[in-house]
Structure formats: structure tokens, C-alpha cells
Design a protein around this nucleic acid. Sequence first.
DNA 1: AAAATAGAAGATATAAAGGTCTTTTATTAT
DNA 2: ATAATAAAAGACCTTTATATCTTCTATTTT
Lengths: 151, 151
Amino acid sequence: MFSQSCKYAIRAMFLVAQRSSEGRFVGIKEVAEGLDAPQHFIAKILQDLSKRGFITSAKGPKGGFLIDVNQRNTTLYDLVLAIDGNKLITSCCLGLKDCSEKNPCPVHNDFKPIRKKIHSMLDNTKVCDYNDELAQSVFYLKDAGIGPITN
Amino acid sequence: MFSQSCKYAIRAMFLVAQRSSEGRFVGIKEVAEGLDAPQHFIAKILQDLSKRGFITSAKGPKGGFLIDVNQRNTTLYDLVLAIDGNKLITSCCLGLKDCSEKNPCPVHNDFKPIRKKIHSMLDNTKVCDYNDELAQSVFYLKDAGIGPITN
DNA sequence: AAAATAGAAGATATAAAGGTCTTTTATTAT
DNA sequence: ATAATAAAAGACCTTTATATCTTCTATTTT
């Protein structure tokens, strides 16, 4: 459904949205630990999101990432679109380049309502929508597990 | 959504279902041309589908692939499950390993009905359901295009 | 000003997916 | 029997996605 980068991006945005909501910057190490994800990979993704204006960054001590008042309106669809492009919503799920109303693949019509649902769901969810649930551990951004056994 | 192999598999099954419906075997070259897809790659996929019992194969002249009476009941979900596994339907779309009712990710609940819809759609579509539409060119299995300009 | 902190940037490595090529085996028609 | 046909099998190559590592630059605190 989403690329790994995109999954991390969404989770990272949820996390930074929640933890930066009182104004402090959230360090990249904290983000990586909070998601149980590879730090340098997360760094790359956040840098990209920062270039695109979805997140604010600051270097140096007390630096990190923050989602400001305007950025709180970012939707999941904005993120998916920026990272994975619009293929999930617009392109043929059987891989035809010119699948359309006029030239439909066999499942074109069946998938239309599904696509629409995915799109509206992503479009109606903002990165700060679950700040409270995350703070109260109603929702999670990483696995609870005790971690892999490293013999 | 689906891997490339899975997309080709679905298209190939639709094509073989339609063209073998009068009892003749459809050669691999014919399948590849009918889908405008790489022949050896399609071969690999069809051999796999044959091992799994979704399609019947015959070697030698007049050989090829055929979907018999029992195999006509194969659904798209059967194919997706065999090739891509159940991750599309069951695994967390944000990549959490133990995302569940008890440990939900922020979008767990939002995606539940979407997953259900995808699953039922795939489960209710059989490989021979569009034989007529394919024969009458109401639905297509390859792009209409004039092909790339090969300077 | 110096040291410590932390993001920015880019090169490199690894793994998986996608695709190609060659050889082998089985079948049918002559 | 022989030749032609077509799938089976597996080695190999290419590309992309994922992940890591190192160096550089900016900022803050002392």
C-alpha cells in the first residue's frame, strides 16, 4: 500500500506532532527510538519532509523537529502524495498505463469506490488528529515487543 | 497495492480463462503478446500458477495453458494470496508488527472497512467473470498505445 | 572563542523485485 | 524414429528500495 519511507514518514509526523505540541523541538534520536526505526533512514525522511515544508527543523543543541501551527493542517494524503506520488489513488491496479473509463481493465469499475474511500480517509486525517490518543497510549507508533533475541 | 508479478498473474489468468474457454491451450507467446508483457517473466509466473493448481499446462505442439472447469472458480483473492500473501488484507498499513484491536496504530480503525471492502471485492471476482467483456473488447488487458518510439 | 550538540548531505552497502537468457525435458506430428 | 514445438527449470543480470556510514555545517551553551 505505502512504501516503507511513507510508513515511517506518517508515523514520524504523528510522533513529532504530538511531542512538539508544547513548543519544544524533538530530536532525531528521540524520533527514531519512539518509532523503533533506523535513525539515519528516519533522518533522511525528515529532512525531505522539512524541505517540502511539512515540518520545521533546527540545528544545534535543543534543536530537532517541530510541527508548527500551520503545519498541523497537513493531512496524510499530503504526505502520501509527496512521498509515494498519486499512483495509489490514480493508477490502474493491474498496471495498465492507459486504463480509464474508455479503456477499462476488468477491475477498473470495482476498484473505483475503494480508491475513493482510501482517498477521502487520507484526506480527512491530519497529523495532529491523534495527539491525545497517542499521549494516553490509546494508539501506538511502535511495537510493544521485547525486541529480537540477539544470540 | 499488488506486486508486478501479481498484476501480471491476474491479467494472464483473465486472458487464459477467456481464450481457453473453448478447450484449446493458449501458448505462452500468445499470453505475453496479449498482455504486452515480457515473455520469460510471464512464463515464470504461469509455471508457478501451474504448480499451485490454478492453471493446467501441456508441453509440446498444441501445448500451452488452459483453465479447466474446476479452475474457473479461482478468485482474484486466491491469486493475490498465493503470490503476494495476505499482507494487503491483514497487516498494518503503517508497518507495525503487532498492530491489533488491543494495540492499534492511529489509522487501524480507519482502514478496517477499506480492507474489508478490498477483500470482499477480490473474493467475489472469479477469473472467468469477464470472459464475455474481454471477447467483446469492453475490458482490456493491455494498453492500446502505438508503442514507444524507438529512435 | 571553544566545545558539544544535532541536523544536512552525500556516498556506499544490502536486499528484494523485476526481468532476461540458456539449457533441459516432454509431447506431438510427420 | 525424427524433427519441431513448447513448457520447465534455473542461472544470471539489472534496477529500485531500503538502510547505513561518514563528513560537513549550523547553533547553542559554557
